[in-house]
């Protein structure tokens, strides 16, 4: 008997079932199919303006910095401002995200932009989030050529652009949107929920920012 069959057989013996019971199968399949929503905290159940305000407050609570701009056209200037305020060189790396590509970078002629994955030696990266979750100030990023996952973790400063309209109240609403884009039961290779810059409390339980991931997380809300 394979290890697989042995383990499944032991599970079934312990549960007193043989695995073919139609009602059990129907129950499990229905749960995976319907994905029933459990209890959603009231905290995020606000109108869009309330959700944006909550997202911002929760993100700042976990040491993210947040700025709001009116449109994508303002993003290059917002990035240049951030780099100046942190005394960083005017350069960063990004992926092929068409929304980022369409922004008026000519307005910031000093900015040096490279694209593609990070080799671990970039100081600053820029990503475009797929969404954000207000209840905990969480960004959601998705892997792919548009926004390579290495850009989320290797640079010291991670700048994330998010459409204000993509901010939702809770995780469940985010998953509902994901299913619409990808189809039922299908996921991109990686979805990263990011809630603040990297940190560690492993030395004497003192929280310090900048463990292995970015030391700083800067969020630009658009719209």
């Amino acid at each position: 008997m394979s290890a697989r069959d042995a383990i499944l057989a032991r599970v079934r013996r312990s549960l007193g079932v043989d695995g073919t019971e139609p009602d059990r199968r129907a129950t499990a399949e229905a749960r995976m199919h319907d994905a029933p929503i459990g209890l959603i905290p009231a905290r995020g159940q606000l109108d869009p303006a309330g959700q944006r305000a909550l997202f911002r407050a929760m993100a700042e609570k976990v040491s993210s910095s947040v700025v709001a701009v009116a449109s994508g056209a303002d993003v290059p200037a917002a990035i240049a401002d951030y780099l100046r305020s942190k005394n960083l060189p005017p350069s960063f790396r990004r992926g092929d995200d068409p929304r980022l590509a369409a922004m008026p970078w000519d307005s910031q002629p000093n900015l040096e932009i490279s694209t593609g994955i990070s080799d671990g030696h970039d100081l600053v990266s820029v990503s475009h989030a797929v969404g954000a979750i207000a209840e905990t100030g969480t960004l959601a990023l998705q892997s792919g050529g548009d926004n390579p996952t290495t850009l989320n973790f290797l640079p010291d400063h991670h700048i994330v652009v998010v459409d204000a309209g993509a901010i939702v109240g809770d995780y469940e609403t985010f998953w509902a949107g994901m299913r619409q884009r990808f189809g039922k039961g299908v996921m991109p290779r990686t979805v990263n929920f990011v809630t603040g810059p990297s940190r560690s409390g492993d030395i004497e339980q003192t929280i310090l920012l900048g463990a292995h991931g970015p030391r700083a997380l800067h969020i630009i809300m658009v719209g």
């Binding site: 929760m58 976990v62 969480t138 979805v191 990263n192 929920f193 809630t195």
Partner: peptide
């Protein structure tokens, strides 16, 4: 409220 990184890998 939430850990910094919650990563879903498929």
């Amino acid at each position: 409220d939430m850990s910094v990184y919650t990563t879903f890998s498929t």
